[in-house]
């Protein structure tokens, strides 16, 4: 059987370094399988976060050969195996151990977003097209790879001022929900800091669910913020009609 070398980060908050492991490569094997082999045979305490191993839960994010990926969907045969495959933890989040990072910040941000609020007059007849539009956002599996690559978070660590692509996707799913009556434009502008995004599309590139985060979530939300806060004509109309 073919073999591959995995160069895996081992360490804790106090520091660490990579270690090499030789792993037999079976047909169709994914990087997570290789990590499980290491756990089962070579390093029983190797910390890896995972759940479904089917690309549905978004737990096993890591940086494989420098690219943020779900390890359960990264085939070994898609990587050059003549040199070591490096597997590092996500850089944008504090390390716990080995490949496991502390992503609790995301859960705290999520709590700030006002929930779905059905319009009082809503008649619950919904067009499939509206479902499809919103489902693009609701299919997010919260792997946080988009958060990990966003330079506002990764390089500049602006976690206090900026919610990151995952939560713009979440807000887009609420704002474009055909039955929702709340407005989150003020929140986007201030607390969630959408203005800091300069649409480099790094998030879109790494999304395993192929959500067009920048084009379909962030840009329309930026437009909403502009409409709500900076469009003089609309401001006037709203003043006359009485804002909702």
């Amino acid at each position: 059987m073919r073999e591959a070398t995995l160069r895996v980060f081992r360490g804790e908050t106090t520091g660490g370094k990579t270690a090499d492991y030789r792993v037999p490569v079976a047909p169709g094997m994914v990087v997570l399988d290789a990590l499980h082999y290491i756990q089962g045979h070579l390093a029983p305490d190797l910390a890896v976060r995972w759940n479904c191993k089917a690309g549905k839960c978004g737990s096993c994010s890591a940086e494989v050969n420098g690219r943020p990926r779900l390890t359960c969907k990264t085939r070994m045969d898609s990587l050059p195996l003549d040199k070591p495959v490096t597997v590092l933890p996500m850089k944008a989040f504090p390390l716990i151990k080995d490949l496991v990072t502390d992503v609790s910040w995301n859960f705290r941000i999520n709590k700030r977003i006002p929930p779905f609020q059905p319009r009082p007059d809503a008649e619950w007849k919904i067009d499939q097209r509206d479902v499809d539009r919103v489902q693009e956002f609701r299919k997010c599996i919260e792997c946080f790879l988009c958060q990990n690559v966003c330079h506002v978070l990764r390089e500049h660590d602006k976690k206090e001022e900026f919610a990151g692509p995952r939560f713009f996707v979440r807000v887009a799913g609420l704002e474009m929900h055909p039955m929702d009556g709340a407005s989150r434009a003020g929140l986007l502008r201030k607390e969630l800091g959408i203005g800091l995004c300069n649409i480099t599309k790094c998030c879109t590139e790494v999304c395993p669910e192929e959500i067009r985060i920048t084009d379909n979530a962030i840009i329309p939300l930026k437009e909403r913020v502009v409409d709500e806060f900076y469009d003089p004509l609309l401001m006037l109309v709203r003043k006359i009609r009485g804002a909702r």
Binding site: W124, K125, I126, Q128, V131, Q135, H177
Partner: peptide, 17 residues
């Protein structure tokens, strides 16, 4: 679940498929 924001596929009449 719908009142809490879930969205399901629809029939032509706009009901849950």
């Amino acid at each position: 679940l719908e009142l809490w924001g879930a969205l399901f596929d629809r029939t032509e009449k706009g009901q849950i498929l």
